[in-house]
């Protein structure tokens, strides 16, 4: 077996793969080189297993490859792979749902605390040459920058999937009340996570923090519009570490500019990187991040633990846990 690995995989995972053959480990974070088009086809000549994260493997490339047996996309949603094309060629495509869940949940909590405790403003104050060393100014800001604790605050989680559940778990020690809108999770299942099931409008009306963790589907696209924002408390914070397509940036901008809501934290935008002249840049009640939700060292371990065992299952003739096109398994047999 020859495996080309351009995703980040930890040493333990690489060792497990090497027991089955040659592993060409060329992770993007080291090489800084993406593969695409004919260059990708050349790199995959003679390769049985391709483990990728960012490279686009589309129909033209899949059609041109004769040897490739397994495609592993280290993403929750393997948008970089043409699934129908792989299925037509009988190639199983495995993926890594939840690999970023801990990372994004941590960042969501960080944004709640940054917003609630005015951390951006407080940090900026100390760097201000006029006010940072002025004792009377500091005494004043001690009161001006008083924030809010998470204790007894209501946090509304929109979408109680892998990330939403981890956000809920992290909130329990803070003493927060957690409510969630997710039509696909039952009341009892939510109760198991210490979460109360509510409808979307109730969530928006009652929450001190609204945080989005839904996937973008036809059902959820634009789900937070003008009507929804108008239901939020003027003291509430809005957090989006999921996808900007769930919301409307212009409506959020107006609501934040007019202080109809207290503030917001965004890690995702309609256009990334966020243009320097974007209206959000002019707001002082917004924390803006460059889509770093999944940017942690530990994600390498998470995706290794999801992807590598599934590859070994396929090599050993077993069914993988996370396969996008299970219909190919009926006729699939790994050629050793």
């Amino acid at each position: 077996m020859i495996a080309l690995v351009t995703a980040s995989i930890d040493e333990e995972g690489l060792t497990d793969l090497r027991k089955h053959g040659e592993v060409r480990y060329q992770p993007l974070f080291e090489t800084r080189q993406m593969l695409g088009g004919r260059r990708l086809v050349r790199a995959l000549e003679g390769v049985d297993v391709f483990i990728t994260e960012a490279d686009n493997l589309k129909e033209a490339q899949i059609e041109a490859l004769e040897i490739l047996q397994i495609i592993a996309s280290c993403r929750g949603n393997p948008v970089n792979i043409d699934i129908p094309a792989a299925t037509r060629k009988g190639i199983p495509v495995i993926h890594a749902p939840g690999r970023n869940a801990d990372a994004v949940a941590d960042l969501t909590l960080a944004l709640m605390l940054i917003l609630g405790r005015n951390i951006m403003q407080a940090s900026a104050l100390l760097r201000d040459p006029d006010r940072g060393s002025d004792m009377s100014a500091l005494a004043q800001v001690y009161f001006d920058l008083r924030g809010t604790e998470m204790w007894e605050k209501t946090v509304g989680i929109v979408g109680l999937g892998a990330i939403g559940r981890k956000v809920a778990a992290r909130l329990q020690p803070f003493g927060s009340k957690v409510i969630s809108y997710d039509p696909y999770i039952s009341e009892n299942a939510m109760a198991d996570y210490g979460v109360k099931k509510v409808d979307l409008h109730t969530l928006l009306r009652e929450s001190d923090y609204v945080t989005l963790h839904a996937m973008v589907t036809d059902e959820t696209r634009g789900m937070i519009g003008a009507r929804e924002i108008s239901l939020m408390k003027p003291t509430a914070f809005f957090i989006n570490t999921a996808r900007s397509a769930l919301t409307d940036e212009s409506i959020l901008y107006e609501a934040l500019r007019e202080k109809k809501i207290a503030g917001a934290g965004f890690d995702v935008f309609d256009k990334e990187p966020l243009p320097v002249d974007h209206p959000f840049m002019s707001l002082d009640n917004v924390v803006l991040l460059p889509h770093i939700g999944g940017a942690t060292h530990e994600v390498t371990t998470h995706q290794t633990q999801i992807i590598v065992p599934d590859i070994l299952r396929l090599i050993n003739g077993e069914k993988p846990l996370h396969i996008v096109n299970p219909e190919v398994l009926e006729s699939f047999k790994f050629r050793k």
Binding site: R32, Q33, M34, L35, G36, G37, R39, L40, N56, K58, E59, A60, Q61, V79, D82, P273
Partner: peptide
């Protein structure tokens, strides 16, 4: 176009992004 496969990138894309 990239999502549909009509366009492929390769090489040092972080540098190329600077041209946006």
């Amino acid at each position: 176009a990239a999502m549909s496969g009509a366009l492929s990138f390769s090489g040092d894309m972080s540098s190329a992004m600077g041209l946006q």
